[in-house]
Design a protein around this nucleic acid. Structure first.
Lengths: 187, 187
DNA sequence: TTGATTTTACTTATTAGTAAGTATATTTGC
DNA sequence: GCAAATATACTTACTAATAAGTAAAATCAA
């Protein structure tokens, strides 16, 4: 696949995570890349098209990560740890996540983008739920609420953890994500 | 104070909470109100000016709520309950909160707005921290981590709870906010 | 030379913002 | 008490900048 196309996707994603979907333009992309506006339109005819591609790329990346972890025989604890690490990296880079960013702009998105976002979040919550449930059965985690509730709670902590850390202080994210582990670690 | 000005502030806030700061324009306000674009500029010369006014109005509303609760002799449990109710109402109205919305757009805001946002969030976290600490001393709450960590954790749950609920399902917010109480209620 | 890629040169729409004017109150000087 | 001055609350009619998007020509690479 074209290296230009890849780079546009990468930059577009970064812009969504740093300035928000309605806070960036094709100009932002073309200027940084040293190409013309129309070249971006060549690969992604519309902004919606670009946004949708970014969403699908992300959903795919998640699936690959999950598949990869299972191939390597990661247990549920290790899988949760790896998932958390993605967020720790985002925090280090002063980025929020796609869910938090597009969640804010959801009413300005087109139906295909909204649907794709819902699909992605739903998939992540389902995976978290299953991982928490299986991990609890093995005694790797300890919590009493239904796994789906716990999944939503953990995801919410991570999503808004990044936002709060960017507003207040980067180090605040650590406090938030560590408290997740305190809650689910068996005594 | 002018009723038109009040209405612009109200509508502006609603637009930030539904479409995001970079997702609405003065046109959105003037069209709904049946006035001209320039009339909005008459009250708020720039969009930054409007955004700043909305932030300050919100911060003031928070202070009034806290003051009011203390005048009425609310204990810490009741105060936490009242704070949570503000978020439950937002969820009912398909709105997210100012923190989550402006948190996404923070890098596109001017310094005065960023500073005001930080000030507001800092104030809320401090209040949460103090309320949790005092409540724990009285035996109203039970938790072992430092109060500030718990404050950040609760705020993160509420902020992203609204976002996740708007993406997935309104009822998911209930699961998230109820799990907060499960965590801090003494056994 | 053919197809993929990219630029040139646009269009159309929307944005924030402004200058000047108008009608209606409200205040002030006498 | 009343005319003149002034403030309030807008509208009309713009500007300059930027947005997304397009058609056609030029360039490049196999």
């Amino acid at each position: 696949m074209s290296v230009t196309r890849e780079k546009i996707l990468e930059l577009g994603e970064e812009l969504i995570l740093t300035k928000g979907y309605n806070g960036f333009s094709y100009q932002d992309i073309s200027t940084v890349m040293g190409i013309k506006n129309a070249a971006v339109h060549y690969y992604f005819p519309s902004k919606e098209n670009l946004g949708l591609s970014i969403l699908k790329t992300n959903a795919q990346r998640f699936e690959e990560m999950v598949e990869n972890m299972q191939n390597r025989g990661f247990n549920e604890w290790q899988q949760m740890e790896a998932f958390t690490k993605v967020y720790i990296k985002s925090n280090r880079e002063n980025k929020i996540c796609l869910i938090g960013s597009l969640g804010t702009d959801i009413n300005t998105l087109t139906d295909p983008m909204r649907t794709e976002l819902q699909k992605m979040v739903d998939r992540i919550v389902s995976w978290l739920e299953l991982t928490l449930q299986n991990g609890r059965e093995k005694g790797l985690f300890h919590f009493s609420m239904p796994p789906r509730e716990m999944a939503l709670r953990i995801l919410a902590s991570l999503v808004a953890g990044l936002q709060l850390a960017r507003i207040l202080n980067k180090t605040d994210f650590k406090a938030i994500h560590q408290s997740i582990w305190e809650e689910i670690t068996p005594k």
